[in-house]
Structure formats: structure tokens, C-alpha cells
Write a protein that binds this DNA or RNA. Structure first.
Lengths: 165, 165
DNA sequence: CTCGGTGCAAAGCTTTTGCATCCGC
DNA sequence: GCGGATGCAAAAGCTTTGCACCGAG
């Protein structure tokens, strides 16, 4: 296992993992499934179904939304992709193989997404699981707040936090 | 401020808070808004919009989904109600006045929702906010796992966690 | 050849919106 | 009485489903 795989190496690794998963589940190794996996791992940030679909369409790849949804479910199940529900009704996804466990911080004004790591979350997860007799499989932690970028899209009177009426 | 208010006292308190909020925002104090608030505070658990709507209809209260959605937004904004997005596309709500800050633990099989408190989350929130220059307003932490109840609705082979393929 | 997977479009479900009516102020 | 709020229903937006065809095994 390489300690710092190149993007190409990583792609090969995730393909192998996906292949093994499909074989174990006796599912077919269709070109669409691997094309979607490649597209996801060529992206650098969070994405939703529609933007993934559009990207593939723009590359003249013939694929349907149904297949994108179906394949994302498979990729989530074999831990190559993580699904997020950042407050709204629109699901967001991100590749997750070889990336450090992290959580998210979202600006309530401009909706930018930042990531952060904190090992204490793992401890909380372990402790609560033991306390309440749950086999905890994963978690979702999202912090919501106002960023301080001058170009924040929805900038109100952020400089002064007066709460008087 | 009573240290352990009865349900009735609590209801009066939240009504006052809601009234003050409506006055400050120059919104009208309609009977529908207060009926929805009462219905929510008479409930004991998490709920979605449809079940709240049905409850009120069953009590022969004339109310529309639009008003329920609208009022929930107001109640969330004045911190009397909390909105959750527990993984799916269906928003869940819960009353939040006078309850200790808590987070959630959800069984991926039977979907029961448990609550837990851990003060470390507040620390994480403060630290990350300072580190990344965000004014953090609130957070959402959900742990997902398998409960160990014998009557778990979707019980598979939970007793043995073999992962050999 | 078989039958699981795909593309397409229609349906489903939650949430939002438009409009006439109603009622708090 | 004015204008915001409501009820109802239609529309919007994301996701799932049905069906005929395709192609992996």
C-alpha cells in the first residue's frame, strides 16, 4: 500500500475495490459504473447528482440520471463515496477513499463548504456507542456559521453583530 | 425563571417568546401560528411536517400545509423549534425550548432516534470556529449505527458481525 | 441466450408558489 | 379598510420507478 499514491494510482485502487465489491455482490461490471467512478475521482470537491450528470453529458458520455443514482448508491455502500445531506433536500456526495476522516463547516450565507478534522469526534462516537449499546457505523457532523470572507455571497451587516431590535 | 417548569408553564413561556418574536418582526399574531406552536409542544418526539399537519386535521383544526411550513420556519428562526435532516429528504423537527442541547443517534435498521449529550462537541465547535474564522451558530451531529434491541424492526444477522466475503 | 442494467420519461414525494379570500391590526 | 396571512391546489425540484432495449456473463 503506497503511503502517498498519485491520482492515477488511486484511481486504479478504487477501481479494484469497486470490481471486488461488484463481484462479491454478483453485480455486473458495466462500463457506465466505472465511467461514473472515474468521473467522481477526477473531481476535486463536493458535488450533487445533477452536476455529475451534466459533467458526463458534456463529455458526450451517454448516461442517464437513473444510472447515476443507482451507481452512487453502490459506491456509497462500498465506502468509495460519502453521501451528505447538508441541511437542504439536495444530496451532496464526495469521494472518500484514501482521504482522512473529516467533517464539514458550512457558511449559512454563501454556502461554501470547508473541512476540518478533530479526533475527539471519534472518541465521542466510541463512548456514546458503548453507553447506548449501538454498533456505530458512521457519523455526520456539520457546523453552520457565518464566514468572514469579504466576498461572501450573501454578506449582510456581518461586521456588527447587534441583536437589538 | 422556574428551574423545572410544568408543561403548562413551559407552554406559556414559549407563547410569550413567540409573541415577542412576532411583535419584533412586525408579524401578525394569528390563531393558526399559536395553534401550531401548541400542537408542537404537546408532542413528545420528533415529527415531520405531514404528521403535524395530519394531527391538526384529526383535531378538526382548519390549517393548510403552507401555513404549517411557514410557521415552522418562524419557530425555527426564533429557536423554539429545531429542524433536522436525518439523512433522507424528509425534514424532521423537534421543540427545543428548555431542553438541554443534545445530539442524535439513529438506528440504520429500525430508524429509532435516541438522544445524547456530550459537552466536548461545544468545545470542538468553539475551537474550529476560531481556527477557521467562522461565527458558528449551530451544529448537527448524527451518529448512525445498529441498535441491539431484540425487537429492532429490520433485524438482520446482527448477532454475528462476520465480514468475510 | 439470459436476465440484470440502462436510457428515457413518467410518476412520486416533499416543499414552494400563486391567487382569491380572510382577518389582525 | 389595508395588507399580511391563510387555504387550496397547482407547480417545482429531487429522486424513484416502469418499460423496452441492450449487453455482460
Amino acid at each position: 500500500m503506497p503511503s502517498s499514491p498519485t491520482a492515477q494510482n488511486k484511481l486504479e485502487e478504487v477501481k479494484k475495490i469497486f470490481t471486488a465489491y461488484l463481484e462479491r455482490k454478483e453485480l455486473r461490471k458495466t462500463p457506465e459504473r466505472f465511467a461514473i467512478l472515474e468521473e467522481i475521482y477526477s473531481r476535486h470537491d463536493h458535488f450533487d447528482v445533477e452536476s455529475l450528470y451534466i459533467s458526463m453529458k458534456n463529455k458526450n458520455y451517454r448516461v442517464s440520471r437513473a444510472t447515476v443514482y443507482n451507481t452512487l448508491d453502490l459506491l456509497v455502500e462500498c465506502d468509495l463515496v460519502t453521501k451528505h445531506q447538508f441541511g437542504g433536500n439536495l444530496a451532496h456526495y464526495e469521494k472518500s477513499y484514501g482521504y482522512r476522516q473529516h467533517d464539514h463547516l458550512i457558511c449559512v450565507d454563501c454556502h461554501q463548504v470547508l473541512e476540518f478534522c478533530d479526533p475527539r469526534i471519534q472518541n465521542i462516537q466510541n463512548m456514546v456507542g458503548e453507553l447506548l449499546q449501538f454498533n456505530i457505523q458512521h457519523h455526520s457532523l456539520v457546523l453552520y456559521g457565518a464566514c468572514q470572507r469579504t466576498d461572501c455571497a450573501n454578506r449582510k451587516e456581518k461586521t456588527n453583530h447587534n441583536t437589538n431590535g
